[in-house]
Design a protein around this nucleic acid. Structure first.
Lengths: 180, 180
DNA sequence: CCCCAAACTGACCATTTGGTCAGGAATGGC
DNA sequence: GCCATTCCTGACCAAATGGTCAGTTTGGGG
């Protein structure tokens, strides 16, 4: 693997494991086996490094949102639940980073964008015909799935493989959002 | 208000608003209107300051856990849901801090303790008689409520007062955990 | 009024941070 | 073999951080 990609992958793990603020460029460099100056050669600043790290997850989230506009009927909400679970499982570390850094949204572009997408996502869910209770239920289910997957150990769930987890989580979310 | 309490209250807000790592002692001092040395006079280190800030929420969580041992039957789970919603609404900022700083659990005692309590809490929920699906559903509901309340704006929910939110959230959680 | 302990502070320190820069390897096209 | 471009690094810098300390202010009890 190229140094470029090695740094990206290491940074993803370090940011998710220690938090962005507590992860210095030096720390990323050490764990990636390169010099600190090399990290800054490939990614001109720490902020750009975070942006590149989150980029794949952001693209996936944008696609998910584009393809699930207006979840008016139960059928579309059902397909949305499936797609969202897939997204979470495919981008667990990136989701962890986004969820645990709401306060950096103002200073790091990609985190701001991620939060914006989450708002759009909740808007898409909050179509008028759903009542207040139903909206809250849907929101709690979606954010619950996010947090449950993202937080280590709390549910004793993270020692499962993605493939074990996928159908279980989809089933639970369908029940909770009254899709079954 | 005494300087001591003024610093505590300011620190709670700053930690929740900016994250612990990104909030310097100087920052807390400035916003509290005291000197940095004064902060370190009252709380001998940043770590101790965090501990004191989280202390009331931790005590409340310990009480909640003690009074809801073994949620074997539906009745007890019902009272647990109510108590947990009350806890979240009474300690929103502290919950925010705990939820967004899982990676500091190893270096800050109170955050470690908070995570430990969350594990105990999920253990208490995971009684044997509940099936795998039910456990996951209960966990998603609880963590969903946590995250929904804690994350600003995502659900458009945080401009409500606690008193508006309390019955709504309790109702939703009861539905989701099949208590109604 | 005096005194002493508690409260508070400015100055200071070692360390770490994000970032710059000038220069040294490596690499591929000619 | 040579050259240019890309890759990579050690040395360096200004700023900020957590924390110490010696000393000043403050306020209540005798």
């Amino acid at each position: 693997m190229s140094h470029h990609d090695q740094i990206l992958q290491t940074a993803l793990q370090r940011f998710a494991h220690q938090g962005i603020a507590a992860t210095s460029i030096q720390d990323v460099a050490d764990h990636a086996g390169v010099s600190k100056a090399s990290v800054l050669y490939h990614f001109s600043s720490k902020e750009h490094l975070v942006d590149e790290v989150l980029s794949p997850a952001l693209k996936a989230l944008e696609t998910l949102l584009r393809e699930n506009q207006g979840l008016a009927d139960a059928e579309r909400r059902s397909s949305f639940v499936d797609a969202f679970v897939n997204f979470l499982l495919d981008h667990r570390l990136a989701s962890h980073i986004v969820v645990t850094h709401p306060y950096l949204a103002g200073s790091i572009a990609s985190l701001g964008r991620a939060n914006q997408l989450m708002v759009e996502l909740s808007d898409a869910v909050s179509v008028a015909e759903l009542g207040e209770t139903e909206r809250l239920r849907f929101g709690v289910a979606v954010s619950g799935a996010t947090y449950a997957l993202v937080s280590a150990g709390i549910l004793g769930v993270d020692n499962r493989t993605n493939d074990e987890l996928r159908p279980l989580l989809k089933s639970v979310l369908r029940q909770m959002t009254s899709l079954d």
